[in-house]
Design a protein around this nucleic acid. Sequence first.
DNA 1: TTTTAATATAATTTG
DNA 2: CAAATTATATTAAT
Lengths: 199, 199
Amino acid sequence: MASTSLCAANPSASQSLRKVPGFVENKTTQCSFSIESILGLEQKKDGIAAAKPHRPWMDACTNLVLGDDNNPHLQIPVVSYDNSLFHANSNPVQEEKVLKCDKYFSVTERLSFKRELSWYRGRRPRTAFTRNQIEVLENVFKMNSYPGIDIREELARKLDLDEDRIQIWFQNRRAKLKRSHRESQFLMVKNNFTSSLLE
Amino acid sequence: MASTSLCAANPSASQSLRKVPGFVENKTTQCSFSIESILGLEQKKDGIAAAKPHRPWMDACTNLVLGDDNNPHLQIPVVSYDNSLFHANSNPVQEEKVLKCDKYFSVTERLSFKRELSWYRGRRPRTAFTRNQIEVLENVFKMNSYPGIDIREELARKLDLDEDRIQIWFQNRRAKLKRSHRESQFLMVKNNFTSSLLE
DNA sequence: TTTTAATATAATTTG
DNA sequence: CAAATTATATTAAT
């Protein structure tokens, strides 16, 4: 998350954004729109609500790679998810997205191809935690299921994971715990209730 | 008809301390920042004063009622996401159909029971907006991302939602816009930077 | 099939 | 109200 430091300047950048009329200032209470007109499907087919998927891990990557000649090459983002371009090339398990469509595929190739696909669909490749990572995470979780940023960072360092992975892991872990609690509670209530009916 | 509510809609006292949902016992809110110390089993308990949470939507709650026979019946509000199709009807929270509780629980019952429980855990059940509701909200948002109370009320009426839901929706929507704005700015700066390296 | 990492977004809390 | 978090419903990878 430390990335935004680059964001500071470049005013020209914001100009080329479609739509987005700086939403903080104009409160446009003047706009005469009726809900009926909207319900009546007044379609302004302009920019459909910038449904930009959130792909934070892509921010860290760059299209720049060094070739064998030690010269930079720009790798063109090939992707089409919706109509946006996404570029890969970065992160843990890294594969090249230059699709060489010339032969048939080994198991390994097929695997990475699958990973490619999911990549292009815009989803972060699923992280496979090691047994040790899980163990540590579980131990920490036992003591504190809401670790603050400092603990998460420390964990990230020690376990060699992104802090983001840690945070997500804790989120999912809490959800899991809650699920199991709910289930046992349900059973308890159900049993209590059921037996109360039998008395 | 002559039902008497046994269930005061109040999960009294309860959890809902800041950051300490009730399903895990008291947790350290103040942490010492070393994983070693955590792994080394440092436990620390501190009671935090509970404040009564604001749960306005619980006021309508009546689950356990006495029937005419003076026996308890469990009334389970059933959310109809409609098992049939994926659309239509909104407002899961509001439309309640009563299931008479007998011996066993169907999958549907179980589900809604679980929802009940989470309800009592203190959080409003997540509202699932319909496609149409979203569409209208998005359209309004395009024109005015800060609708006043009157517009919100009107929307609420037309979309059959609480005005509160509308308000929250707009808040979240503004946050989303802002986020995406930030992100595209970042990407642009990044790309500018990258291509400047190629010149 | 089951579990769970990842995503999107509704709800809550703070200031 | 915005910002930051948290919860949760889904989706999809394994």
